[in-house]
Structures are given as C-alpha cells and as structure tokens.
C-alpha cells in the first residue's frame, strides 16, 4: 500500500473521552426502538446485544462509551431505520443495546456482507477510539464475509456473538491480552 499524495488539511488529532463523558450520555439512546425515538414504527426482529468489556487484567471497564452503527433488517443504511445507538457500560463493564437484527449488507460486486453491527469504544485510557464488529453465530454468510475472512481463523470468534436466550446475543470485548478482540482500522 502506498500513501496517497496529501492535499490541503490534516485531520484533527483524537483525544481521550476521559472519565466524565457521561455528560453527553442519554441512556434512552441505548434502546434504538424506544417509543419516542426514530425507529418506533420500523418492523423487524427485535434483539438485545450485550457483553462485558474487560481490560488487560480481565477487570471490567465500567466507564466506557459504546456506540453502535448498523443497517436495517433489509441490509440498508438509507431506509427509515436510524441504526445509531450510544450506551454506557455499567459497574460490571456490561453494555446493552435493544435494536432490530440487521440484514446482509451489500459488498463489492454482487457479494453480501454477513449481518453485523459496528461498535465504537471511547474511554479514559483510549487516546483514539477503537472500532470492532459484532457478527451473529450461525449465519451462513459469515463464511464469505470480506472482513471476517481477513481475520486469522483463530481470532474470528472474538467478533461473533453467541445466542443467550430468546433474542439475546452476547459478545464480550477484551481490550488487551488473552483472546484480545480484533479491532479494525477503517
């Protein structure tokens, strides 16, 4: 890969969100299907996405801002569904979103990406946000997804949520160390 020539301006440097970002937290935003929200009328399979975020000691991270970005049940980013959510982790480092299950998203050519949501993490100790994805166990498209295929097989499980009861999918995120989550440079 060669660097492209640079023109004009340079993107502003990132800085940590710090420990007090909750001033811009609105807990209702973790529920994308909230009655007074943008998606109250959109139909689809209602799911809960949850998981624990831990650090290099395996300790829960209780101060994280987690953002979610996903397509609608038809795999579109341009339909009525607004696939954005923001969630604070709790004292056990758990995040929890209520949303609709996304559909397969168009990829290059005539291919499709497996259903997935993008997750962004901000916190004290993160000078730049981290980006990862959550996929769903058992999806046939997982086998040919362009991002999952680029992950060494031994680490793929860090991106695949497992079912945990009706409509609940769980994916734990490990920032550092054993079974460290695969983070993406997008």
């Amino acid at each position: 890969m060669t660097d492209e020539p640079r023109f004009g301006l340079t993107a502003t440097a990132s800085q940590t969100a710090g420990p007090f970002w909750h001033l811009i937290d609105f807990p209702a935003w973790a529920d994308l299907l909230r009655a007074d929200g943008p998606n109250a009328e959109v139909a689809g399979e209602r799911i809960i996405l949850t998981g624990r975020i831990t650090d290099g000691d395996g300790a829960p991270c209780p101060d994280m801002m987690v953002e979610l970005w996903q397509a609608d049940p038809a795999g579109s980013y341009e339909g009525a569904f607004n696939g954005f959510g923001r969630c604070a982790t709790d004292d056990d480092g758990m995040f929890r979103f209520t949303t609709l299950k996304p559909g397969p998203v168009r990829a290059a050519g005539n291919a499709f990406q497996a259903p997935h949501v993008a997750l962004t993490l901000f916190a004290r100790g993160l000078l730049h946000h981290l980006v990862t994805r959550l996929y769903f166990a058992g999806e046939a498209l997982n086998e040919q997804d362009p991002v999952l295929s680029a992950v060494p097989p031994i680490r793929r499980a860090t991106l695949i949520a497992q079912p945990e009861g009706a409509g609940v999918w769980r994916l734990d995120i490990r920032l550092q160390g054993e079974r460290e989550t695969v983070f993406l440079e997008v």
Partner: peptide
C-alpha cells in the same frame, strides 16, 4: 490509563464497505 487498555495486536486494516 493506557497501560491496561491498549490492544497489543495491531489493528486489522480493512477496505471500506458501506458500513464505514
């Protein structure tokens, strides 16, 4: 605070998709 929170593996650079 970065000591225990920075990933030790390099990030995986991916080609942009509609998601990004």
């Amino acid at each position: 605070s970065t000591h225990k929170r920075h990933p030790k593996q390099p990030p995986l650079r991916i080609a942009a998709t509609l998601t990004e």
